[in-house]
Every structure is written in C-alpha cells, then in structure tokens.
C-alpha cells in the first residue's frame, strides 16, 4: 500500500470525535424535522428557556461524571460507584443543612470531601491492594448507597421551610449569565480538567499508565499515585453531581439519586472515543457522548414516546453509534459499497 497524501475527509472521519458528533447532529436533524419547537429559544424571567437549555442543564450531571470517568477509564480502570457516591454527597449536604448550623461554605467542602474520600478508597483498593477495578468499585457501589441511606435514616430529607437554603438551591436551580448554573459548573470543570491534563504532563502520565503500567513504572512514573489520584478525582466529580442532583429537587433522595449514572457515564466515555482498555482519552469526546445521551432522552420526552417502549429507540441509537465507531463494521460496509 502506497502512502496516501493526507486526505482531509479521511482525517476528519478518523477523528474519535467525528462519530459521536455525527450521531448528535443526526438526532438534532430528526428533532428539527419532527419537533421544530425543540430549537425554540426565548428569554423568560431573564434567563434562556428552551429544550436545548434543558439538554445542557439535565445533561450537566452526566457530563460531570463522564469527566471523572474518562480519566479512570484512561488508566484502564472503571468506576461503578459514582451513583452511590452521588447519593452520599447529597445525603451529607442535606444532613448538615438540616441538623447543623454550618454555613453552606462549610457544607459543600464537607460533602465533596466525603465524596473524594470515597473515591480515594476505590483508588486504594485498585492501586494498592490490586483488586480488579470492576470488583473494587462494585463494593462501594453496593454499600455506598447503604451508607447514604443509613445517614438519612432511610428517609428523603427535604430541604423545605426552615431548612430551605437559597444558596444551596442556586447550585441546581439558579441561573448565571442566563444559563442554568449547573451549565456553568460543568463548563468550568471541563476547562479546568482540560488545562490540568493537557497543559501539564499529567495527561500523558495517565495515558501511559493506561497503555502499559509496567513500562510507565520503569521510566519513573508513579503509576500507583496516578491511579489513586484519578479515582479520587472521579469521586470528587460524582460529589459535585450529587450536590446538583440534591439541590435540583431540594431533597436528598438516597434511593433514587444517581441510579444507573455509572452506566450512562461509561456509555458517554466509550461513545466519545475513549477505549475501555485504557490509554488515549478524549475529554471533549466524553462531553459530546453525554450530551448525545441527554439529547436522546429529552427527544423521547418531547416526541411523546410511550414510556414503556422508550428503551427501544435508546438502544437503537446506542447500537447505531457503536457500529459507526467500529472500524471492522465500517470496513465491511465500505467493501460492500465498493463492490
């Protein structure tokens, strides 16, 4: 095979970002045709209002978790406990707001600290004790929700009346520059993470640990510390998501908070072009993947899909995007169309 001159189309289609973006665009085109009101944007009460804003707002939890998950997956691991960590962080925050006089500036760090410690424990189990990531994080996935339920006494702690905190409410329901505040949170988190992993050598270290841990150690990278760090960071992200989730409904609902978010986050990361085997990762891809999933969900609501059949179109889109991403499938398709 001779070396082709760089073909711009080829270069675009081989970018890991291309296929999830294509899926997202197709979904938006579908909406443009069938529910044109999807793209309506107007200003109500001084902030933007429309389905697209909803996608960003409701998608923010998925995006924030996907960021942490991307780094964990890049080291060749996976974190199944993010949903439970969300429940813990929401429970800690609600408990402190109702049972203590600590101000919100003390509550948020405490909730995030609890979440980070939970992530740290995952990291220790994986990197120091050497348990398989699926099993190690499964432990916290199962018992984490139990811890959260224990904290809240198996009740939904509602932050109403005397316990209502306007500042805490702002986290999930407030608006900043016309956009819902969770959007600001995820944009800042994405930017900060991008700067830290891409402008420093840290991203390279993470990729190196994910590609070949032994070789990384041989060249002097502290693989163990890197691994513990990414799990702790993933817990931290889940903690932020848990706070947004609790603030959104002004209650800590430990049974329902973050159920299945770990699967959605893994989906977002994989669709975004980061392989589960670890190594190279793309944060922007994960964000696109999470947005794709939320757009799909909002589409199903606005399109009026019956709730009992809603998983079907979801499955079709997921299979579609995965097939598009698969080199083997694309090659087969190309050969057939060439013949």
């Amino acid at each position: 095979m001779t070396i082709d001159p760089p073909n711009p189309i080829r270069r675009i289609t081989t970018s890991p970002l291309f296929w999830p973006l294509l899926g997202l665009v197709l979904l938006l085109i579908f909406n443009a045709i069938f529910t044109p009101s999807f793209f309506n944007l107007e200003i109500r009460d001084g902030h933007l209002y429309g389905s697209m804003v909803d996608v960003l707002n409701r998608g923010s939890i998925g995006i924030i978790i996907a960021i942490g998950m991307t780094l964990v997956i890049a080291t060749g691991g996976v974190d199944l406990s993010v949903g439970s960590i969300m429940a813990i962080s929401g429970a800690v925050a609600a408990l402190m707001l109702t049972e203590s006089n600590v101000s919100l500036w003390g509550v948020i760090p405490c909730a995030l600290l609890a979440a980070t410690i939970a992530g740290l424990l995952n990291g220790l189990l994986v990197a120091v004790v050497g348990i398989q990531p699926v099993v190690a994080t499964l432990i916290l996935m199962v018992c984490g929700r139990g811890i959260a339920r224990f904290l809240t006494g198996e009740k939904v702690i509602a932050l109403v009346d005397d316990h209502f905190s306007a500042a805490f409410d702002y986290l999930g329901n407030g608006h900043f520059l016309g956009m819902p505040f969770p959007v600001t949170i995820f944009v800042l988190l994405v930017l900060a993470t991008l700067v830290v992993v891409r402008k420093t050598v840290l991203g390279l270290f993470i990729e190196s640990v994910g590609s070949n841990e032994v070789a990384s150690r041989a060249v002097g990278i502290q693989a163990r510390t890197i691994k513990i760090g990414v799990y702790a960071f993933c817990g931290f992200c889940a903690g932020i998501a848990g706070l947004i989730d609790a603030s959104n409904i002004n209650a800590a609902d430990t049974v329902n908070a973050g159920v299945f978010t770990e699967l959605d986050a893994i989906f977002a990361v994989v669709v975004g072009g980061t392989a589960l085997t670890g190594g190279r990762f793309t944060l922007v891809g994960s964000v696109v993947g999470a947005l794709l999933l939320q757009t799909l969900l909002t589409t199903l609501y606005t399109f009026g899909f019956a709730s009992d059949t809603a998983p079907v179109p979801k499955a079709i889109v997921i299979v579609g995007v995965c097939l598009l991403q698969s080199d083997a499938f694309r090659q087969k398709f190309r050969r057939r169309s060439a013949a």
Partner: peptide
C-alpha cells in the same frame, strides 16, 4: 420528584 420535573420541563417546551 426529579423525573417529574424533567418530564414536565420537556412537555412545557413542546
């Protein structure tokens, strides 16, 4: 609660 809110948001848009 959270799902009720999310679904209602979408229905209000439509």
């Amino acid at each position: 609660r959270s799902k009720g809110k999310e679904v209602m948001e979408a229905l209000l848009k439509k």
